[in-house]
Design a protein around this nucleic acid. Structure first.
Lengths: 388, 388
DNA sequence: TGCATTAACTCAACTGTGTTGATTTATCAA
DNA sequence: TTGATAAATCAACACAGTTGAGTTAATGCA
């Protein structure tokens, strides 16, 4: 579940792989750059950059974008990412269905599919994932050879912990390492993460966190999750279960309760259920919010306090550039939180010289985490590292 | 205050520097290894390892330790770290005094000094730091040329935040970047961090976290701090202020209060003060604890709850291998907490297959953070990275 | 208009570092 | 004693980045 490619020694080949990523990352960051500038910002010689650029052009990962003039000297040939140069697959395994999506090298979603999960055994899950990923690969409009890898998203926590009841706690994964299993099944690089982590990385690849490298993402799933990104890398903890913020105890009307008992999709549903309202489909909450439905409004104001606490905890513990709110709740409700939350003054994030807002809205909707799975792969493609 | 050496391109020279660290780190981890084994575990050829070992021997960083026999084949020549191969300086700047210490390559403390701070202006602090570091370098018994760098420890938070009142908030550092300033003053590599982060890294270099790479350290300073280590690197946040756990709001008798108002050295002092007891010197708490002084015992039982909450938060948010408790409180009191704290069942850290205890005691005493400053440098010496 | 200046880029020789495969050395085991 | 085993060395080689000289194509000034 973590992504810490083992640190190994460097040799010529691995250095080149590292440097390709360095160059690729500068191109992505700038949108459009010339070789000389890449050389200046990367600590490589122009010659080295030239050679790597030639490689990347050969591989179709980048495009030539004409020359930039306006300054003295020979106009620099500009390069930019080629969206069709590669794509990544995201596969999200939920208790009732499997979702799959593809995004291109620039992080733009290409297509998505879903399929009901008829049984919860390893065989059924594997078959569904395999069928779905084949389907997406076939329809994606880019040669399969350009598949960079697959990001598998499934609910944490991973391995046996004190937090029961999650889908991945099903006997399926007790004896099987998901990463190895899917690498074997799908035949390319595979990364496994939970929904919050996937969603967090997604923001960096194509969302609110573009250009940021240290931030946190509060993910409204069934529960409440947290994705922590430091220097462009996920902070996943020792066993891949970091970010289980929903389980921390916070003050509540009845003493102390887990945060996610007050702030999560499940908690709205429970709250509305006690008012005799059943959340039938995914649009219900959105409509109820527009209609100003009283029970929902009550929940919202009840949830604001604990959510503020959560943000205070995240800010003070992680000192992020920003905290992003997103996940499986309607945009409108997340926007509501953005304004209703009270950001504490006593926080390391309370500073006057901020370049980014303390709070932002990230991706939302039911595909957020699935797309995030693919984003894990794209992010890795651009993350310089010496690895085996 | 972060240590994120900028990611740059690799070349032959930087690869060698990276590989030296890879080799050095394996030697440290094993205590005693042969070249062939290093090669196997590092992804380098034996020849490359041989060349690097020759380099390291030349530089005096490692020693030859004879041959290991007992197996078939040519007995492997074993190598181990040479403690005298290098040393690091830690300098801690407190409101009233400056502490300095030196540790050797193996993390063993060599000597320490202190000096009262007569004024709090930049000049006075600089002079004191410079004088003290010269003194330590002179008396350390290892040539100054073997100084690997200096770790400066000062109370966070850094830069202007919503958390006032800390020493580094003094006007001194408003216009001056401490890292650049001390690099200029002391003339070698300098790392700046707060006490909790320094103490956390210290455990990894020579304490309870030896061999661990992902853990958290709850530091009892004047307030309550947290050092977060993931994959051997400090998680410092975007502005170096991650870990300000003392400021997060938790339930208290009077509603909600900052954690460190109940769990910190200052909070004991305040608590005892209301009972008419003044904490006069650093041994007082230790003696009071042995004597079973009622007011202190009251505070201890009052603090256990909030401390348990803090640990629950840390475990669930960071999924560490272990949580280490240490800092400026007597051993006995920290040991008391180790047993009095109730570890929540609902935690990602509640697992049966643990290799390390959930809770451990780390270094304590007044030099903990100072030694940690030096440990920052030692840790960096062994951390493989392609950097300029 | 012409020429100096500037900066990107290329070429070719060179350098540093790791890899490879054959060979040597030292110990264990039969 | 001899063969198996594994560490270590040697020497030729490959890869990738660097260096410095030379080329190209703009700008800016006379």
């Amino acid at each position: 579940m973590t992504i810490p490619d083992k640190i190994v020694g460097a040799n010529a080949e691995r250095s080149r792989s590292h440097n390709r990523k360095v160059v690729l990352d500068r191109i992505r960051a700038s949108g459009e750059v010339g070789r000389a500038e890449i050389a200046r910002t990367s600590g490589l010689s122009t010659q080295a950059v030239s050679n790597i650029i030639a490689d990347l052009l050969d591989d179709g990962l980048i495009n030539e974008l004409g020359r930039r003039s306006g300054v003295r000297g020979l106009p620099a040939v500009q390069y930019g990412l080629n969206p069709k140069g590669g794509f990544a697959l995201g596969v999200e395994i939920r208790p009732d269905a499997v979702f799959a999506a593809a995004i291109d090298l620039c992080g733009t979603p290409i297509l998505s599919r879903r399929q009901i999960l008829f049984a919860k055994n390893l065989r059924a899950v594997s078959d569904t994932v395999l069928a779905l990923s084949h389907e997406v690969k076939r329809d994606v409009g880019v040669p399969s050879s350009k598949l960079l890898g697959t990001g598998i998203v499934m609910p944490g926590p991973f391995e046996a912990t004190g937090l029961g009841g999650s889908a991945s706690e099903l006997p399926i994964w007790h004896d099987v390492d998901p990463q190895a299993w899917f690498e074997d099944l799908l035949g390319g690089p595979v990364v496994v993460a939970n929904d919050a982590n996937a969603a967090a990385v997604s923001e960096r690849v194509s969302g609110a966190a573009k250009g940021l490298s240290t931030y946190a993402y509060l993910y409204f799933g069934t529960g409440l999750g947290l994705g922590i990104v430091q220097d462009g890398r996920l902070v996943t903890g020792a066993f891949g279960n970091a970010g289980e913020i929903g389980h921390i105890p916070v003050p509540s009307a009845s003493g102390v309760a887990p945060l996610e008992s007050m702030v999560s999709r499940l908690s709205v549903q429970n709250y509305l259920a006690t008012a005799g309202i059943e959340v039938r489909n995914s649009n219900y909450l959105s409509q109820a919010y527009s209609a100003g439905q009283p029970a929902l409004m009550d929940w919202l104001s009840a949830a604001s306090g604990p959510l503020s606490t959560a943000i205070a905890i995240v800010e003070n513990m992680l000192d992020p550039e920003t905290v992003i709110l997103g996940g499986a709740l309607p945009d409108a409700i997340i926007d509501h939180f953005l304004t209703s939350v009270t950001l504490p003054d006593r926080s390391v994030s309370y500073r006057s010289d901020r370049a980014v807002p303390r709070l932002m809205r990230g991706g939302s909707g039911r595909m957020t985490a699935t797309l995030g799975g693919a984003a894990l792969i794209i992010n890795r493609t651009f993350m310089p590292q010496i690895a085996a």
